[in-house]
Amino acid sequence: MSRTFILAFGIFLTIASSITGLVIIPNWQFQALKPVVKLDGTRYPEVYFGDQARGREIYIDQGCIYCHTQQVRMKGYGADIRRGWGTRRSVPRDYLMDRPHQLGTQRMGPDLASIGARQPSVDWHAIHLYNPQLTSPGSIMPRFEYFFREVRSGEAAPADAIKVPQQSNGVTHIVPTDRGRALIAYLKRLNQSFPLPEANQ
C-alpha cells in the first residue's frame, strides 16, 4: 500500500517539475513584459478590437495555424528574415495580446507574422482568399469563396466590389462578407516591424 503511494508520488513529481520548469517559470518571467508606447502615443502591441478581434476568431476557426506560422526566427537561423518574412526576430512581447496563441509549427504556406506589412492591400488579400490561384499560381491553399459574395457579369457591381483579375464562371467582382472583411482586417494588422529593443540583443 505505502509502496503504491511512493510510486504515484514519484510519478506525480516528474510531471509537476516539468510544468513548473517549462510553463510556470517562463510565465513568471513574462509577467514583467508590458506593451511599449510609441512616439505617436499608440501602444505596441495593441489589443485586438472590432473587426480584428472577429477576424482572429475566423483565422482560428478556419485552422490557418495548420499551414501558417506567426514567428520569425533570428538572423542566421533559417532564412526567415532573408525571405522577407520579417525585419527582425519575433520576441515574447510581440504576443502579449495573443490568446490563444497562434505561433504554429507548419509552413506549408509562408509565415504570416508580418503579412500586414508585406501585403498592405485589401484587394490583394480579398482576391487571394477568394481564389489563391489568382495571386499565387500553384498554391495549395484552399479557396475561401464563402467569405465573398460573387458579382457576375451583367450584374451591377456595388461600390465596395473588388475586381477579379481573371474572370471565371462569369464572376467579375467579389464583395467581402462581414466575416471576409474581419479576416482581412486581422491579416492586415499582423505586423511585427516595430523595432523592439530586445529583438536586437
Binding site: S17, G21, I25
Partner: peptide
Amino acid sequence: VGIEKENCFVFGVFMFIWSFALISG
C-alpha cells in the same frame, strides 16, 4: 534598467534550476 532587471531574473532562474537539480539529484 529593464534589461538589467531581466538579467537579474535570468540569474534567479539559473539559481533555481541549479539548486533544484542539486536537491533532486
